[in-house]
Design a protein around this nucleic acid. Structure first.
Length: 617
RNA sequence: GGGCCCGUGGCGCAGCUUGGAUAGCGCGGCAGCCUCCUAAGCUGUAGGUCGCGGGUUCGAAUCCCGCCGGGCCCGCCA
């Protein structure tokens, strides 16, 4: 099973087995042999190397090089290990390329779009919260990074056998909503355009006006109080406005192929009573105390024994801070509150997913929440409040839930001139809608050049897929914790190390397969003699390991880098290894299978990245 | 003042968790490759004290300590 679904892993295990047996034969201690295995810098040193001899040198009082020689001689090839050689103190294992090719190609042909999937999660439920933008503005490219990271991780974890539920939290009770609602009411002439953009601009306008008209602050406070109270005209009006904005935001994320299972509204959480329940629960612990001194009159969460600073949860006026609400929500995600939410269908995503929403007129459903693992995709700047929320779980005795809470922290996207600001409107020109439009327009020009006479529907679909691919890739390729500076030339990069370049390799592979009608034939497995062919086989064999690593470490960028690497290997193969015009039928047959498998793996990788794999472009 | 993250050729990144062989990849520069499966491609070439200084080690980009530079947090904001 494992050998079938994860060929490179099989090679590693075989190498380990060979290493252990050689140790036994020589009567040497085993130790942690697995961690001594690494990939050599150059294929001339084999495919996997062990550094045990360096460690053993001290214990056995013999030079590493001599030890390596004895070890290599004692090693007997088995499984995917074709041989072992000593060099410079390393023991280098050579992979049996013919056998690896056989295993890998058969695995890919058999599993198809499931190659790369592994049954690690065992159906365990993971809840991922991402996007969670205030419903008062369009998504700018920084929000886009959040959505794309969250969506990609969701796809990866699904492939690893987890049941994944994606939630988008909508804070319709915050200051931004209050301010935007005031702006919306006051605007006699509303700007034309997409609703979220309209709101975003009104928000910028009101901030300008508030500078010269301080009385507006009072208006905002009044609205905020009404929102907090709920059940009045203002709160219903705010919800209606926010609903429209969310629909508008969803048009944007739909275009990015980002999907959600549930929209969770703050006003519904507030109504449910889960906050009060959570606070009551906390009051029974020694950690929630009446504040003294500067915190006089407030309720303070004291987590000193867990190494955290005090955090006010309830203000002296009785209202709760955001972190308190977030804590209640976190408990709900794990199914640890009795309070219930109500749900009803909201809309369908283009991929067919039915998105639900919490709603006062919905009905209770057991299928949401109750996760065993929770991942919050939230900016790095919220590290402290996230830690407070998680640590509070521990304080409440939910140790397991504490350990299974993950803050997937990502660095913000900045502009060359500074940061994004909703108030000053620096996002204008950098909304996801605008960036995607621009990328699609450029892709369109390229597609036109290369597909003269093609149908209109083909051209627009290809341009859309390529443009979106470029944007998604540019947002996922960097390690999440790093800040990125938005540059047009990077978001619109269609060359190597880009979404479109990977899509292009897929299209080339598809094109070869399209042009050949012959279906199969017999061939031996040792036909791949070129380094480019062998490199490609190894790369294909590694795919499941990469998916596993990306999922376990919550580092989706690893998958993006792998896809670019695979595409590079294929391009090199493509240059030197004619398929249709191969020297003989046997080689042609084998190369065709290799090309087909490459096509499948690129497609699977792109699928996990939420990028379409066009057959022509 | 306390804490977290980042610092790798001109630019953008990977590698750091688990220390190992000449530090990889891309862009950009230069020089080449389309009678042949899509040149969104490929080949070659120049370019790096892995921020700085100590330490641990047979061996440090990787671990430890100190410092410098950038970002973020330490709110009855989120």
């Amino acid at each position: 099973m494992r050998a079938l679904s994860n060929p490179w892993r099989k090679f590693k295990e075989d190498a380990l087995k060979v290493l252990k047996e050689a140790h036994t034969k020589l009567g040497w201690p085993w130790g942690e042999l697995e961690v001594t295995l690494e990939e050599p810098p150059d294929p001339e040193f084999g495919d996997l190397a062990s550094t045990v001899c360096f460690e053993l040198a001290g214990k056995l009082r013999e030079a590493p090089a001599r030890l390596a020689k004895r070890l290599a001689e004692a090693a007997e090839p088995a499984g995917l290990v074709a041989g072992a050689e000593a060099s410079n103190g390393y023991v280098n294992f050579r992979c049996d390329l013919a056998e690896l090719a056989r295993l890998t190609i058969k695995a890919i042909e058999r599993m198809g779009d499931r190659y790369g999937h592994l049954p690690l999660g065992g159906g365990e439920k993971v809840l991922i919260e991402h996007t969670s933008v205030n419903p008062t503005k369009p998504l700018h490219i920084g929000h886009g990074r959040n959505s794309v990271i969250g969506d990609t991780v969701a796809r990866i974890l699904r492939a690893l056998g987890y049941r994944v539920e994606v939630q988008n939290y909508i804070d319709d009770m915050g200051l931004q909503v209050a301010e935007t609602l005031l702006a919306y009411r006051m605007a006699k002439e509303k700007p034309k355009g997409k609703f979220d953009h309209v709101l975003g601009k009104l928000y910028v306008d009101i901030h300008d006006r508030m500078k010269s008209e301080p009385k507006l602050e009072g208006e905002v406070r009044k609205i905020l109080a009404e929102l907090e109270m709920g059940g009045n005209r203002t709160s219903r009006e705010a919800r209606r406005m926010a609903e429209r904005c969310v629909r508008s935001n969803l048009e944007t994320t739909d275009r990015l192929n980002v999907s959600y299972d549930l929209l969770v509204w703050e006003s519904d959480i507030a109504r449910s009573g889960m906050l009060e329940e959570t606070l009551n629960h906390l009051r029974r612990t020694p950690y929630l105390v009446r504040g003294k001194g500067k915190h006089d009159g407030a309720l303070v969460l004291c987590l000193k024994e867990f190494g955290l600073e005090d955090k006010v949860l309830v203000r002296s006026d009785g209202t709760a801070v955001y972190t308190a609400r977030d804590l209640a929500y976190q408990l709900w995600k794990f199914g640890k509150v009795g309070a219930e939410l109500r749900f009803k269908p909201h809309s369908k995503r283009p991929d067919g997913t039915q998105t639900y929403t919490t709603s006062p007129d919905g009905e209770p459903r057991k299928k949401f929440g109750r996760a065993s693992k929770v991942i919050n995709v939230v900016g790095v700047e919220q590290r402290f409040p996230q830690r407070v929320v998680f640590t509070a779980l521990r304080a409440l005795g939910f140790q397991r839930e504490y350990e299974n809470s993950h803050h997937l922290a990502y660095g913000h996207v900045r502009l060359p001139g500074g940061k994004f600001s909703g108030r000053s409107g620096t996002w204008m020109g950098y909304s996801v809608d605008e960036v995607v439009d621009e990328a699609v327009a450029r892709a369109r020009a390229e597609v036109e050049k290369r597909n003269i006479g093609a149908s209109e529907s083909f051209k627009s679909r290809a341009a859309e897929e390529v443009g979106v691919g470029a944007v998604r890739y540019s947002l996922i390729r960097t390690s999440p914790e790093k800040e990125i500076v938005f540059k047009w030339e990077e978001a619109l990069n269609f060359e190597r190390n880009s979404g479109p370049a990977i899509q292009y390799s897929h299209a080339r592979a598809s094109s070869i397969l399209r042009k050949v009608k012959m279906k199969g034939g017999r061939h031996r497995w040792d036909v791949f003699k070129l380094p480019e062919e062998q490199q490609l086989v190894k790369q294909l064999a590694k795919f499941p390991e990469v998916v596993k690593l990306a999922g376990e470490k919550l580092q989706p960028h690893l998958l993006a880098l792998y896809a670019a690497d695979l595409s590079l290997s294929f391009n090199k193969f493509y240059e030197v290894a004619p398929v249709i015009g191969a020297e003989n039928e046997e080689l042609k047959t084998a190369r065709l299978r290799l090309v087909n498998c490459t096509r499948i793996v690129i497609r699977n990788a792109l699928d996990l990245l939420g990028i379409k794999a066009p057959e022509r472009m």
